[in-house]
Design a binder for these strands. Structure first.
Lengths: 328, 328
DNA sequence: ATGAAAGCGCTAACAA
DNA sequence: TTGTTAGCGCTTTCAT
């Protein structure tokens, strides 16, 4: 692989001149520039970003750590991050921890070894631990699921208010108190949505009925099973708020398998607005996360940090938006 | 940020000893080792992978270029790649070209600048161009959509045979010749699936009716619109093979909007087996791509190349598997 | 407008 | 068992 030396020799100039030509810094006679460019082309020269970074420059990379690359919600945010980063000539390095804390730690370490200029992390239950090992808090922002104990910048949708919108909508059409398919209690976003559910009922002077709350996680399968239990247990059920779309889709499946119809028999609202919400029949009413805005802000924040500016450590909480479809 | 020199000074040893301790190469007295480890911990030392790579080592990274990170099929393959790479201590750098040829080129360039040890590319119509600019064919493998002109290793599902399985299944239950919702003609995988469709009809002495072939692309929306046109135009329609699951789901939506039912009125088969295929009602019968196997082989091949072994340049074509669900 | 040389953090001889 | 030193590819003074 050709080096800057090779180019210099071939162009008959010194390495410093090639460097200047490469970075368009300092004076280079246009004739010389031409020779250098030709030499580079002939040699198929590709500068070594690692060597450049070593001299004091940056790597022009931002690392993104996702707990599950096969999650449309996450990846759409990552795409927004990608587009924003691309505009600033940053290269995004995306990695998947598979939700495993150990792997998350390893990846963060790898990112540091690679000397990424900034880091964007999707919060997971294990993230808290990992962050404690991140000695020097370089540019870093946490996304989506907030880590209450983290003192740095964070960005997410307003899970709480979004949930309230969803439950209020159900209340508008249902004759009985809506049920809730809950997420894992230790994940902040699931907690917030649960709190929204509770508070709306409280506002409407409806007492919380534990029978109408069924634990699940963020998966299709769990939503499916939760709904089965709900149907078996609660007779007067005509509205369900699911902690996210995936669980809602599972619930929908269960509803149909029981010979019930949606929204006629049971109204259903999800959260996130993943693509599949639009695909299914009936299409799913849901609270849309502002994925573009989340990604955009994340990049703006890390870039600010990279440039040495101070950033707000108060979490940025963006509003979710009701997407009205057929299921409610 | 602490360097190896800092560690050496703090531990009261030379840099070489620290290096040896770090890489567990050569002898280091366990007492010295201990001092060094302590110094590293105190300093929060993180080795600079770029500097290491410069000396002659590798970066222990593999780049993965995806045309769309919000495509479950791709990302599940990437996860398989990730898991395999992880086992070998390689870090995966995933990037998204958004299907734009220009961006694809830029990303490949960035990967080269970053000196990834190997590159895994999902083929797109523009990939051919990009590959011509890849001067030294370092470790590289093309996935999923084969590029006929590419002389290196490639891995994909057997689009052709998979399509045949799908159409044969339809033929078994339909009274009329099945229709085909086609993909973009310039994408090899779409072509192959089309060929499979044609050949099965040919084998059954059914003449190809252009009215029953409706162009679309790999998207939900296109499948939806194609199905609408099909329903409007073809009266005796009771079976449809869609080029992929997304298009099939769009088609399903159109079927229901026309008051028809699936599979009762129209039987439907897709291709890929994305998650949503299981979520929808009725669930979608489809041909499953062996995503794990594809990812696994891709990694095996680049690793072989990285280790200097010769690899087969004949494309590896893995069989797809019929997943029987409700839609047919 | 250009070249020589120092040095970025690290590894790998080579000595000791 | 350990330290010294020469680079790896590049940018950046400092001369010229």
């Amino acid at each position: 692989m050709a080096t800057i030396k090779d180019v210099a020799r071939r162009a008959g100039v010194g390495v410093a001149t090639v460097s200047r030509a490469l970075n368009r810094t300092g004076y280079v006679k246009s004739e010389t520039l031409h020779k250098i460019e030709q030499a580079m082309a002939e040699l198929g020269y590709i500068p070594n970003r690692q060597a450049r970074a070593m001299v004091g420059g940056s790597t022009m990379t931002i690392g993104v750590l996702v707990p599950d690359m096969d999650n449309s919600l996450f990846m759409r945010i990552v795409q927004a991050i990608n587009d924003a980063a691309y505009r600033y000539d940053y290269t995004l390095l995306v990695m998947d921890s598979r939700g495993e804390a150990e792997r998350e730690a390893k990846i963060v370490r790898a990112m540091q070894e690679l000397r990424v200029d900034g880091l964007i992390l999707f919060g997971t239950p294990g993230t808290h631990e990992v962050l404690n090992h991140l000695s020097p808090t370089g540019p870093l922002v946490i996304l989506d699921r907030l880590i209450p104990s983290f003192p740095g910048p964070q960005v997410s949708v307003n899970h709480y208010e979004g949930a309230k919108i969803a439950v209020n909508l159900l209340l508008q059409y249902c004759h009985f108190p809506p049920a809730f398919i809950a997420g894992p209690y230790h994940v902040s976003s699931a907690q917030e949505r649960y709190k929204g559910y509770q508070d709306v009922l409280y506002d409407h002077q409806i007492s919380i009925d534990q029978n109408r709350i069924e634990p699940a996680d963020f998966t299709y399968q769990a939503g499916y099973e939760a709904m089965q239990r709900l149907i078996a247990r609660v007779s007067d059920l005509d509205g369900v708020f699911a902690v996210n779309d995936l669980a809602a889709l599972g619930a929908m499946k269960a509803i149909y398998e029981h010979g019930l119809r949606c929204p006629d028999d049971i109204r259903l609202v999800g959260f996130d607005d993943i693509h599949a919400a639009r695909y299914v029949t009936p299409s799913l009413t849901t609270i849309r996360q502002p994925m573009e805005a989340i990604g955009e802000s994340a990049v703006n924040i890390v870039l600010k940090q990279i440039h040495g500016e101070l950033v707000d450590t108060k979490p940025i909480v963006l509003p979710g938006k009701l997407i009205r479809r057929e299921s409610c």
